[in-house]
Write a protein that binds this DNA or RNA. Structure first.
Lengths: 152, 152
DNA sequence: CGGTATCCGCTTAGATACTG
DNA sequence: CAGTATCTAAGCGGATACCG
């Protein structure tokens, strides 16, 4: 795919002749990246998915209870649900060993492994920008303390 | 930060001596990246944020209505709400021109600009993996059609 | 051990109507 | 033009209890 953001000129042109839509834009909407991005974000944007991926990203298979220890605060239910979603999407492989007591192990699939890099990039960004974001929020909230009208 | 995933040996060691927690793990939980990641994901993981960032990533200031045209399907309300969040977090700058009719322009801040790369990485991953994910879902749903018990 | 089932509250997002 | 206000439905996530 050779999709790239439009240049300034293209953007301006698209704005002026309101009817035309650039390749970039059409790629961002329903048929193209928009749907994929939104669909993917609906899954990896939830509370636990990236944390599970990070836990599995070391490349070793982990059992249910091990995962739970790796992700403090997650409930049994949410761990099950999130793992199920990841398995359904083909990002995580679940292996049930028919023993007593049962043993279930989880690992990233090949596709799941390709998520590690983007996820780490995002995680790094989050870590590096977090202080700045927190500071900005404080400033914003302090400024708006008086009026409900944003621009007053 | 010199945080890196633990090696296999470290992980195994951590599992065995259940009490110890590796640097990587502690960085992933509440005090460290976990909070930042979750907080950030709560914002950028919603339905529209990344689409807005992408629209603004071309580096040109866009007006409210222009943004709305760039992101088909977004409602006035959701555009307002999402932009407000981005502004509060210091990722987007809002400029109100005191004219009649009013003109408001939005652009990425410096920090907002640093989000472009991770966002694009994630977007690319989404686009490239989407077909595979969809296929996996179909397989998963077809296999489970019979029984509610996952492992049966 | 590794789940499932149920209930319930909170947040998100869409539709609609109104405004400086 | 660029919002705000209100209402509502759906989804996400937590707590608890029970099961193979």
């Amino acid at each position: 795919m050779a999709i790239r953001p439009p240049t300034l000129e293209e953007t301006t042109a698209a704005e002026n002749s309101n009817a035309r839509i650039s390749e970039y834009e059409s790629a961002c909407v329903a048929g193209g990246q928009g749907e994929a991005i939104r669909d993917v974000l609906n899954h990896i944007g939830n509370k636990w998915t990236l944390l599970i991926v990070r836990a599995l990203s070391v490349g070793v298979r982990l059992r249910f209870t091990q995962l739970q220890r790796h992700i403090p605060g997650i409930s049994q239910r949410m761990l099950t649900v999130t793992l199920r979603h990841l398995e359904r999407d083909g990002l995580v492989r679940r292996t049930l060993h028919a023993e007593v007591p049962p043993r279930v192990e989880y690992e990233l699939t090949d596709i799941g492994t390709t998520l590690i890099e983007p996820a780490r990039a995002l995680g790094s960004w989050a870590t590096e920008s977090y202080l700045s974001v927190l500071a900005s929020r404080e400033r914003f909230d302090a400024t708006l303390a008086g009026g409900p009208n944003h621009s007053t």
